[in-house]
Design a protein around this nucleic acid. Sequence first.
DNA 1: AGCTCTCTCTACCAATTGGTAGAGAATCGT
DNA 2: ACGATTCTCTACCAATTGGTAGAGAGAGCT
Lengths: 205, 205
Amino acid sequence: MIQAGAPVPDRTTRERILDAALDLFGARGVDAVSLDEIARHVGVRKQTVLYWFDSKEVLVDAVLEKVAAELVVVIDAAVRAAPDDPLDRVDAVVRAVFRPAVRRPALLGLVREVSRLSQSQADRLAAHISPLVERAVHYLAAEMETGRLRTGDPRLIAALSYATVTGIATEPEALRTVGWVADQAGLRALRDELRTFLRAALTPL
Amino acid sequence: MIQAGAPVPDRTTRERILDAALDLFGARGVDAVSLDEIARHVGVRKQTVLYWFDSKEVLVDAVLEKVAAELVVVIDAAVRAAPDDPLDRVDAVVRAVFRPAVRRPALLGLVREVSRLSQSQADRLAAHISPLVERAVHYLAAEMETGRLRTGDPRLIAALSYATVTGIATEPEALRTVGWVADQAGLRALRDELRTFLRAALTPL
DNA sequence: AGCTCTCTCTACCAATTGGTAGAGAATCGT
DNA sequence: ACGATTCTCTACCAATTGGTAGAGAGAGCT
């Protein structure tokens, strides 16, 4: 905690604000979290938050940017490391997406907020994600040609997978409604069920 | 629009408030929609809303209650009407869930709000949904025994399906990020892809 | 030492929120 | 005809929100 009149220049304050914002936004949503609450979590005044980020919208932007960039790196690495078999590759991507999510639920929880973004924010996010998706779609299409994947619409498969992952991310607690336990073991079990589904649906007949 | 000093007793006002609240909550979230905005949509003052529903929380409750009850009826009817084959039955449920969603996107969009509910609200919702899920789980388990479905954990399958549907519901616009078009045709295509997936994953080897 | 830049602070503000108090018009049962 | 009930209104309020203005402490360069 920093006392009044002792503003030791602290380059990490910005990072700590981003960190707290990610957790809080992810857990309870952008609307429900005030700048003041974020500031309190960091041990700083609300106006300090507004010094680092000109407005709440800018802060949201920065958080999304950070998360998207990290996610892209993780997925990218997983794809490159995976063996040549397309089924194994899909499997690797699914596990790669869930790994950070298991460690830090707020990460995927943030996805829930995407639907509330402004047009420009959504566009910027898409700029990060789209290239990844396009590559995946082309890859899937190519492998369907070679017969190593069951034929289908790769874009729909991508959309469905994305929807499923965000669905899991969105509702770790809501899934209790269907009797699912939202702990790490439960998350892993659900991830594995998704892997099974994808394999079953993509394995050539 | 009702003019001042002309409060013709109108039993439908309550219904119209519920209706507007459903659409607005579903489209933009409970937090982002004020009572005043709902009132304006109905053509009434905010205080009239508070006359019919003691607080915003009560209004949210009522909307959820209504949606849950309707959804239960729809699914129930679909199951009863479906043929005896378990794969067809699963298929019928998926279509039944999507039918109201296609007609009225806000309906499933409301699911996004579930994660922000209070404990008591979540419990009440679960009271509606759980029996349905339990029946489905037992049914799936029984059919796995008879060999007409691939064996697996029925509860995980239910959870995964639920997550997928809510994922689609949550992100009709966010899915644009992966290049998916969020119109009715797109929704149908995605629904059919989900049906294909479920069939592929559940068909006995 | 003195000056500038970086950073966090105190003090405020206008707007919006959910909610309360209570007046008054229309309808219905008597 | 009349009183009670039902329903919507005007008028307020306390609390919270995102955001602004500007003071002032510490660090580093000259």
